[in-house]
Design a protein around this nucleic acid. Sequence first.
DNA 1: GTGGTCTAGACCACC
DNA 2: GTGGTCTAGACCACC
Lengths: 130, 130, 130, 130
Amino acid sequence: MNIDFNTSTPIYLQIILEFKRQIAVGVLKPGEKVPSQRDLAALLKVNANTVQRAYREMETLGMVETLRGQGTFVCQDEKIVEETRTEMLKDLVDDFVHAMRSLGLTQEETVKEVEQMFQKLELKGEVSDE
Amino acid sequence: MNIDFNTSTPIYLQIILEFKRQIAVGVLKPGEKVPSQRDLAALLKVNANTVQRAYREMETLGMVETLRGQGTFVCQDEKIVEETRTEMLKDLVDDFVHAMRSLGLTQEETVKEVEQMFQKLELKGEVSDE
Amino acid sequence: MNIDFNTSTPIYLQIILEFKRQIAVGVLKPGEKVPSQRDLAALLKVNANTVQRAYREMETLGMVETLRGQGTFVCQDEKIVEETRTEMLKDLVDDFVHAMRSLGLTQEETVKEVEQMFQKLELKGEVSDE
Amino acid sequence: MNIDFNTSTPIYLQIILEFKRQIAVGVLKPGEKVPSQRDLAALLKVNANTVQRAYREMETLGMVETLRGQGTFVCQDEKIVEETRTEMLKDLVDDFVHAMRSLGLTQEETVKEVEQMFQKLELKGEVSDE
DNA sequence: GTGGTCTAGACCACC
DNA sequence: GTGGTCTAGACCACC
């Protein structure tokens, strides 16, 4: 998990997004324990308060549950995986297609750009980051 | 031009991005005068200082030139159009493809999502905004 | 006479400085007519009000006199040449030596830098601008 | 560090210049923390926004790096010292020699003026300011 | 405490 | 009218 300290997206939002991704993709399973706030803060080199805020908001969003003294766990409900995945996909694709259209690109041109980028990344043997 | 006051992207960056888009798309032509700081501030309902910061950074980026007392003008160099377009496209497509891959989608699945979103927007008769 | 539109020194001050220099150096003689405000504004591509302000302040400083309907003339008093020259030299040298000392240079190092710059300019066959 | 409120040089530029000087002269070392925006503003009796503008531009120039919540630090790269010193010297000497030549002084006359000013300052026991 | 963004508003130089 | 600088002060994210 990487934090970009120079972007305008607040760090706690970056943390939430990454958890969403890991849930959507199955890296983090329903019911599974997530790192302690302290550990994650150390790992990300981020202040503990920032992690705390991310966990608090994830709780509000129903993504995780905290059991006092035991830690924080991904929501038990299996539906969360598909829901999170669908939501993330929709947001991404929606924003992207709107942006491409506002730059004047047609469907065909957009698809072509996407295909070229995929191929460029494959040639570089780049691995999709987790 | 619309400002989203609820996003974490600073207003001055939103303004810069919109100018880049308008240059890339040909709405704003090399040498053309852009709105005065005061006018744009009134139009967007933001503070004049915020517009000024955007304009100042656009000047640093070489997008515009300012003549004191006369106003601010898009850079004369015709190359700016193609360069801006290429840069914006690259950024968009690069970020998008990385995000889709990190969600585990293949090239084919991604293209399918993009095509579906284009068709959904077309059915809604939505017009790409300028 | 060149105006630098991108410096923080106001244009009317740049104009005054240039007149001082021309007087100090004898290009402009006591009693001699200076260009009309309109002509100078056209020459410098500057607004007439700006030239007017420069002339007004030069009058206050006793550098020039304006005779209605006849134009503006360098002060008659011959002493103005030497006085202006002395004042400009003092300001220049004083500022320069202070700046070099604040950069930690000794007299010898400073003199060496000055000599090298003179020689560099001579080799380039650069002409001192008037 | 002193600010001259009566010059046409903007305060934020005066601040940048002073930092350049301190870097060039070794008072401020690569990697060292500079005063917080609030502290420097209080010290100089200027507005915090003015200091921030100076710091922001120094960041663009590569002179300093900012870590959110931690402060602003002189660029790590040791080369910055020599580069800054060289750049400042060149600017100073270049401007000075051009000005002296445009006043009609020869190399010898200029050197003599410089030497006299150095000696005058030494007699006064004036200390080069840091 | 530290920097980042934004607002409201003043005053200036220049057109 | 147009941009440039500066102030006073608010609120936020992060340490």
